[in-house]
């Protein structure tokens, strides 16, 4: 699905990713943990195609050179980023926005546009997945949404767009325990043998609900340790200092 080789990224002359390597197979869930400032969100942004970075290295996504694709081409090829801070867009309704997104992706993949009836049906079905109120589809994208509603809206969009590779950037931040459960249930419902996930989080708590196949520790712009899901527990218990010491040694 995805292979990242020696990925570097800098912004305004400051290098944040310093040669990151990661390989993700179909249907796998990889958690990326790490202390603040280690480069977790930069990795998410670079994968989604944010243009603020100078990027080096190679990223191959289903045989394509991902770094050459525009953000929309990545989405059309099945990438999805759930934003840490979803953007509020006044004057564009959730429904209008999603219809355009669904149809852009369909057209790019040689499918016909979805008609309004099928689209409404699909929305209804996917909204149930994250227990979203139907009035939210008529509201402007994320405008006036609470933190929890915004994160739910991200997972709702993910469900609508049916991506192949989902990158969740600190989806747990700002969620209370109930919202965390709803969001995690939504994600788990979307897990299958084909779809892969990169779950970026600062805390182990999210991984109680979205159980990963692999856990990686990102520190100082590189993946410095990888292991099974138990690694997350260890990090929760011992913090990150022992990792830092290991790296320094």
């Amino acid at each position: 699905m995805l292979e990242i080789r020696n990925l570097t990224a800098s912004v305004e002359g400051k290098q944040i990713l310093k040669g990151l390597n990661l390989k993700i197979g179909n249907g796998e869930v990889h958690a990326i943990m790490g202390p603040n400032g280690s480069g977790k969100s930069t990795l998410a942004s670079v994968l989604a195609g944010r243009e603020d970075y100078e990027v080096g290295g190679e990223v191959t996504y289903n045989g394509k050179n991902l770094l050459e694709l525009s953000p929309e081409e990545r989405a059309q090829a099945g990438m999805f980023l759930a934003f840490q801070y979803p953007v509020e867009i006044a004057g564009v309704s959730n429904a209008t926005f999603l219809k355009q997104a669904v149809n852009s992706i369909r057209l790019a993949n040689g499918k016909e546009k979805m008609d309004s009836k099928d689209f409404l049906k699909l929305m209804k079905e996917k909204m149930a997945l994250v227990e979203m109120d139907k009035t939210m589809t008529q509201r402007s994208v994320n405008e006036g949404f609470s933190g929890g509603e915004k994160k739910r809206n991200e997972i709702f969009q993910m469900a609508m767009l049916e991506p192949k590779l989902c990158v969740l950037d600190e989806t747990d931040s700002g969620l209370d325990i109930d919202a965390l459960k709803i969001v995690s249930n939504g994600v788990n419902a979307l897990r299958n043998n084909e779809r892969s996930f990169i779950v970026i989080t600062h805390y182990q708590r999210l991984l109680d609900y979205i159980v990963p196949d692999f856990v990686h520790v990102l520190y100082n712009g590189r993946i410095v340790k990888s292991g099974p899901k138990e690694l997350a527990m260890e990090l929760e218990e011992k913090g990150y200092d022992w990792i830092k010491e290991e790296v320094a040694a």
Partner: peptide
């Protein structure tokens, strides 16, 4: 730019995304 990136990250082509944002501005 943030709004534009958000729309594009959902698969909406750059030109369509710009038109959507401008139309939203105008709809006010």
């Amino acid at each position: 730019d943030e709004s534009l990136f958000y729309l594009r990250s959902r698969g909406i082509n750059e030109n369509d995304a710009k038109a959507m944002l401008n139309l939203a501005f105008a709809n006010d």
